[in-house]
């Protein structure tokens, strides 16, 4: 007698389960189609959400990298004194990096940010004594969350006039994203449950259609898993097929959006995630979710309608 808990399913049995599952899908073609569509709509919404969420995380991370305190130095400091202030800031334990940005450099950066117009606008400020910008020290804190405290400390250093940072841009972005995320998640969860129930309904139809076969299988002593497997495969298959279209559509839309928004350089702070790495994540997530929804649907039906 064979052991019930044999972990390795025989190839023969496995291929049989797949055939059986495929027959189930074919038999209830319209119900399967409806279930696949429901999964597809659900996953499409999830896909949009995923793109949004991945990008927000990506942007936040990029922003965190850029988070820097700008400490403006008192005008009367000599070069030596500036260097001393710099050293003092660099020696703080919470500071990762600090750099001196002379006002000439500051003006150059400003011009660069404004592009072609910059040369025109800032023309009058060039030359000795005309530059209104202060000399700066940019300070990068070790922990971006800690930026406020660090900026206070930097401010208190003698020779520093003021210390400012891009107050809360990251925070606001993350805040907004968590709101949107919650709304989409609740909405998506509702849809996912709906899709799972639609799948469970198609599985139920298969169970009913195969009622007699199942009865015979039970009678002759088929193991419970032998009877259940085809239904799980059928559910997972519906979820899988339902994942294909939303993945393609969502990623195509992203590709279009990405190229319209100037290859991710719409603004220096809003850098979109490159399509390749995003594509891998999104595809994996959508497919995993589709299979999960499908399997959940089968579990619901198998538990309710399949007496073993």
């Amino acid at each position: 007698m064979k052991s019930e808990v044999s972990t390795v399913m025989k190839i023969e049995t496995l291929s049989r389960h797949f055939r059986e599952a495929y027959r189930g899908v074919r038999r209830n073609a319209w119900m399967s189609f409806a279930a696949i569509s429901a999964v597809a709509v659900t996953l499409f919404i999830f896909g949009i959400f995923l793109i949004f969420a991945f990008n927000v995380r990506y942007m936040a991370a990029e922003l965190d990298k850029q988070v820097a305190i700008r400490a403006s130095l008192a005008e009367q400091l000599t070069d030596d004194q500036q260097l001393q202030v710099l050293k003092q800031i660099q020696s703080m334990p919470e500071v990762k990096n600090a750099e001196l940005v002379p006002k000439e450099e500051g003006l150059r950066q400003l011009k660069a940010q404004w592009g072609d117009e910059g040369t025109e606008i800032f023309k009058g400020y060039e030359g000795e004594g005309k530059n209104p910008l202060p000399d700066l020290i940019t300070v990068e804190p070790k922990d971006p969350q800690n930026i406020k405290a660090v900026s206070e400390r930097v401010k208190s250093v003698e020779g520093v006039n003021d210390a400012v940072f891009g107050d809360g841009v990251t925070d606001r972005l993350l805040n907004l994203s968590s709101w949107v995320r919650n709304i989409v998640l609740i909405f998506g969860l509702g849809l996912a449950i709906l899709a799972a129930f639609l799948i469970s309904n198609t599985i139920k139809l298969t169970i009913i259609a195969r009622r007699r076969e199942i009865e015979i299988q039970r009678l002759v002593g088929a193991s419970n898993w032998f009877i259940r497997w085809p239904f799980f495969i059928e559910g997972a298959f519906i979820g899988l097929v339902g994942a294909i279209f939303p993945t393609i559509i969502v990623l195509s839309l992203y590709q279009v959006g990405y190229s319209i928004l100037g290859a991710g350089e719409v603004a220096s702070i809003l850098k979109l995630m490159p399509i390749l790495s995003l594509g891998i994540y999104v595809t994996l997530c959508i497919f995993a979710l589709g299979i999960a929804i499908g399997t959940l649907g089968s579990i619901i039906s198998v538990r309710r309608f399949l007496k073993v």
Binding site: E4, L219, V220, G221, S223
Partner: peptide, 14 residues
């Protein structure tokens, strides 16, 4: 146990 029932049934033809 439920999972052993199939083995009981294999001894019986109906």
């Amino acid at each position: 146990r439920d999972w052993k029932i199939p083995h009981v049934r294999r001894k019986i033809g109906v």
